[in-house]
């Protein structure tokens, strides 16, 4: 009678441990597997030379440039809107029907699958606004996609700035905007940056939204109106068309390593932020 619950406990806990280990093992396996096959093929030449023969040989330089250009442009477009929305929601208005609608909109936007963003970007930016397959079309589409993340994380970051700082600022004769600009935003910056970094990571890994908006040109771009192929699109094409597994693994490795590095640094930022606040 007394032993039975104990048995259930042992059984249940062992199952839980097993499942957890399996989960971690799978995820670690994926990384180790890809890096194991990819790392040996990565060298300076791979990173800095042009692809040859559709990517069967040569490097991935234009795709690195394309990825950076697309991601940076998207971030530059989305950040002011995202942070501005967060500032409005937290500082310029009280909880109301309007704030609920805005938050609901952001939540919905966050849930839309990337292929829909791709469809939309294609019909709206590429076709309707005649931007063609270009960095601009791709990054605008990406900007739509990462907007909710930036809103959310900025809002959290801004909310975590102590109310007393604002009160001090007002009591010293600051206007609302001066308070936001001189006290709130600087103190929320690490948190805001975390959100931006997460969005960078997401943009780098994105494929479906980009392939129909930025195209897949393998030439190094010279302006915002040039079509580009990002690393993940390049990887997709290499893998799907079976052009070269060796190059595919190497590209995936570059992709994963850059995303992991970006995510890691955003965690580092976040932790520093939390540490500083509790100090």
């Amino acid at each position: 009678m007394i032993i039975r619950p104990k048995y259930t406990q042992v059984l249940a806990v062992s199952l839980l441990v097993l499942a957890t280990l399996a989960t971690l093992a799978i995820l670690v396996f994926i990384i180790v597997f890809v890096l194991g096959k990819g790392l040996p093929n990565i060298n300076a030449e791979f990173l800095f030379s042009n692809p040859e023969d559709m990517g069967r040989a040569g490097g991935i330089f234009p795709t690195i440039v394309g990825t950076v250009a697309l991601t940076l442009t998207a971030i530059c477009i989305a950040t002011p809107f995202g942070v501005g929305t967060a500032v409005f929601l937290t500082e310029y208005t009280r909880e109301s029907r309007i704030t609920r609608i805005i938050r609901f909109g952001a939540d919905c936007l966050a849930g839309i699958p990337s292929i829909i963003f791709g469809l939309f970007g294609f019909i709206f930016f590429v076709t309707y606004l005649r931007m063609g397959w270009s960095i601009l079309s791709g990054s605008l589409t990406l900007a739509f996609m990462i907007l909710p993340t930036i809103i959310r994380t900025s809002e959290e970051a801004i909310k975590s700035v102590p109310y007393s700082y604002r009160e001090v600022s007002f009591s010293l004769g600051a206007t609302l905007w001066q308070t936001v600009y001189k006290v709130v935003l600087p103190n929320a910056l690490p948190g805001i940056l975390t959100g931006v970094m997460l969005s960078v990571g997401r943009s780098i890994g994105e494929t479906a939204a980009i392939i129909f908006t930025a195209g897949s040109s393998l030439r190094t771009p010279h302006s915002l109106f040039d079509s580009v192929r990002t690393m993940s699109v390049h990887f997709y094409i290499l893998a799907r068309e079976g052009l070269s597994n060796e190059k595919a693994y190497a590209t995936a490795t570059v992709l994963i390593v850059s995303i992991l590095m970006i995510n890691l640094s955003s965690y580092w930022l976040m932790n520093r932020f939390i540490l500083r606040k509790t100090k």
Binding site: E167, V168, S171, L172, A174, N187
Partner: peptide, 25 residues
Amino acid sequence: GIVFALPIPLPASIHDNVIYGPSLS
């Protein structure tokens, strides 16, 4: 001007805290 019960320096240097008010003007 008001000084609150708990000292609340802004997270900036001593110098920047003092000039906060004047620089707003």
